[in-house]
Computed example of a mutant assay.
Amino acid sequence: MTPQENYHDWLRDAHAMEKQAESMLNAMSSRIDNYPDLRARIEQHLTETQSQIKLLEEVIDRNGISRSLLKDATSKMAAMGQSIGGMFASDEIVKGSISSYVFEQFEIASYTSLIAAAQKVGDTASVEIFEQILAQEEAMADWALTHLPVVTEQFLLRDAADGVEAKK
């Protein structure tokens, strides 16, 4: 493959990744009942993610790239499977918080690579977009890691109390 073909493929991957993130964030947000700070941050990042999808679609359209419906559908199915699997865990909120942080790291690595690829193929118009998205992903990852101890502590307190739901 040429550098241009790889870049185009990675753009389709990024679009599918963000569609997966949108599905995961929607599912997670709808299931959080007892952790209002986490729910608010997830909802904020969901809005950012929806904006990121639009920005990626603009980059894809500007580059004359066809979208991969298969990649988008597969990523959404993976998100649904992860969401359903988490529903059965007694510590769903902690596992979801950890998974969220890990996924943010994957997105950070993906956009770091896309920036390098865009520069290599001369798509300088997209570099700023990827840097903007990268900053949002880094902010979410930082928030998730910083707040993981708080979510964990809240879960442990709720889980130890009789008659109090802790998992979500």
Rank of each mutant, 00 (worst) to 15 (best):
E153P: 00
Q52I: 02
M140Y: 04
K76M: 10
D37W: 07
I42T: 05
S90V: 12
S51E: 04
E43D: 12
M87Q: 10
Q44V: 00
E137T: 03
I108N: 05
S90A: 09
N63L: 12
S51A: 09
A160P: 05
E43W: 00
N34S: 07
T47N: 10
A116G: 13
A109N: 15
D142T: 07
E57R: 09
T49E: 01
V102S: 15
A79F: 02
E48F: 05
D162R: 01
S83N: 13
T47H: 11
I108W: 13
D33S: 11
E104F: 02
A135E: 14
G85F: 15
I93S: 02
S126K: 02
S90N: 09
A125H: 11
L69E: 14
Y101V: 02
A161I: 05
D142W: 04
F155N: 00
E43R: 02
L156E: 09
T152H: 11
I84E: 09
I115W: 09
L114R: 08
L157M: 05
I133N: 07
R31S: 15
S90Y: 12
I84K: 13
H147Q: 08
E138F: 06
I32S: 06
D37R: 08
N34A: 05
D91S: 09
W143L: 03
M80C: 11
L69T: 13
S29D: 13
I129V: 15
K76V: 06
T47Y: 12
S68P: 05
Q119L: 11
M87C: 14
L148Q: 05
L46I: 04
G64F: 07
D61Y: 07
R158G: 00
T152Y: 10
T124Q: 12
L46D: 01
V150E: 09
L148T: 13
E107V: 03
G81L: 12
S110W: 03
D37S: 10
I42Y: 06
S100R: 13
A141N: 07
R158H: 02
D162K: 04
E48R: 01
I115D: 01
E57Y: 06
T124C: 03
Y35K: 01
D37H: 09
V151A: 03
D72R: 00
Y111D: 13
S99L: 14
R41T: 09
D162I: 08
K71R: 10
A144R: 04
V127L: 13
F130G: 00
Y101L: 08
Q154R: 03
E107G: 08
E138H: 01
L114S: 10
E138D: 07
V102M: 10
A79C: 06
I115N: 07
A125K: 14
N34W: 03
G96M: 06
A40W: 03
K54S: 04
S29Q: 13
S30R: 09
Q44G: 01
L55F: 03
M87F: 01
A73F: 11
T112H: 05
A118I: 11
T152E: 08
D33K: 14
S110M: 14
D162C: 00
L56T: 01
A135G: 12
A79I: 08
A161K: 10
Q136F: 13
L69K: 03
I60M: 01
L70I: 15
S68N: 06
T146D: 12
L134H: 10
